[in-house]
């Protein structure tokens, strides 16, 4: 069956030419996990990896979308085309989602050099949706100079984005002092740049000190990137100049070292793991479908005759033997 009534080749050409209707539909197909999407991704892949990629992560309501709004504006002023992926959580109860990031950046819809896609996480962990990685590749293939990803802001587990993008911004706010204490151990790895947003609010100086103190604990290697802390007020635009400067400094760092290659390596490593898990699960469960085996396995676990570990071993063994 053809994709959108067209051949794969036609679809690929349209995406490479930046056709928004086609790419919009492709991303939906990727979200739904159908095979045509995969065939197209195979063809697009060689045309990806050339955009500047940024991630914004941080707690819910910390100001990620408001900052994103400024960043889009700045990159547009530099003449760069911009793609955006904004992830919001799906409701665990209904499976539905209120995708509210877009409203803060919606006025850029008038600009035909900006392309925005909202995604629901659909229960996927790590702050992204399962198809965010692929959507990013699609936007790269469309030729955007800059692609930015906003993670959903639930807690502190939004870590997948770190390896997905080149430059990762962790947004924090005053009043998060305690959380920063708790984060201390892992905080160094999360952000290339720490954005202390809402620095107009009380307590911002203390939090700034606290982050700086934490960061200074890390014995920086010679030539290694030292994470920066930048204070901003997204509502007024204060500090956005500094933030842009910080982003560009990190990009320069990546380009002047073998760091860019390391970033690309980590990204593909993560992607490979993701696609592998997905495919393996899909292939194996497809094999079980209609055989009634899955149901029997589940029953045997409930009845205490088996356990999940034994069942998986059995399934894998049969699968590998059949190959």
């Amino acid at each position: 069956m053809p994709f959108l009534g067209e051949s794969i080749e036609e679809t690929v050409q349209k995406i490479l030419a930046g056709d928004r209707r086609t790419s919009g539909r492709l991303i939906t197909r990727l979200e739904d996990g159908d095979d045509w999407g995969k065939e197209i991704m195979k063809r697009l892949f060689p045309r990806t990896g050339r955009s500047m990629t940024l991630g914004l992560t941080g707690a819910g309501g910390s100001g990620k979308s408001s900052l994103l709004n400024h960043l889009i504006e700045r990159f547009r002023k530099m003449g760069k085309t911009v793609g955006v992926i904004a992830v919001d959580p799906s409701s665990p109860f209904s499976g539905g989602a209120f995708l509210g990031d877009r409203i803060r950046i919606q006025h850029h819809t008038r600009d035909d050099k900006v392309y925005i896609r909202s995604m629901a996480s659909r229960g996927y962990l790590g702050g992204l949706a399962r198809a965010t990685t692929e959507a990013l590749r699609v936007m790269e293939a469309m030729g955007f100079d800059v692609v930015m990803v906003e993670t959903l802001g639930a807690g502190q587990d939004e870590i997948d984005v770190i390896r997905l993008v080149q430059t990762c911004l962790l947004v924090i706010t005053p009043g998060m002092g305690d959380e920063i204490q708790a984060l201390k151990a892992g905080i160094m790895e999360i952000g290339d740049i720490f954005v202390l947003n809402k620095s107009d609010l009380d307590g911002s100086i203390q939090v700034l000190r606290s982050i700086e103190a934490t960061l200074s604990l890390k014995p920086g290697q010679e030539g290694e990137w030292k994470p920066k802390v930048i204070s901003t007020v997204a509502t007024s635009g204060e500090g956005i100049d500094d933030l842009m400067e910080g982003i560009m400094a990190h990009q320069d760092y990546l380009h002047n070292n073998d760091a860019m290659e390391r970033a690309a390596f980590q990204r593909v490593e993560q992607e490979l793991g993701l696609i592998f898990r997905d495919e393996l699960e899909r292939v194996i469960f497809k094999g079980l479908k209609g055989t009634g085996k899955k149901r029997r396995y589940i029953r045997s676990i409930i009845d205490g005759k088996s356990d999940p570990y034994t069942v998986i071993e059995e399934i894998l063994e049969t699968f590998l033997k059949e190959r």
């Binding site: 928004r20 539905g96 209120f98 877009r102 919606q106 819809t109 008038r110 909202s118």
Partner: peptide
């Protein structure tokens, strides 16, 4: 209510027809 019924809702507030249609395309 639509979210609670399992749908994914992109809410964009006040918009003119041109932007509504462009958003519908981008968001498929």
């Amino acid at each position: 209510a639509l979210r609670d019924a399992g749908m994914e809702v992109i809410y964009i507030g006040n918009q003119m027809p041109k932007e509504i249609v462009e958003t519908a395309i981008q968001e498929d």
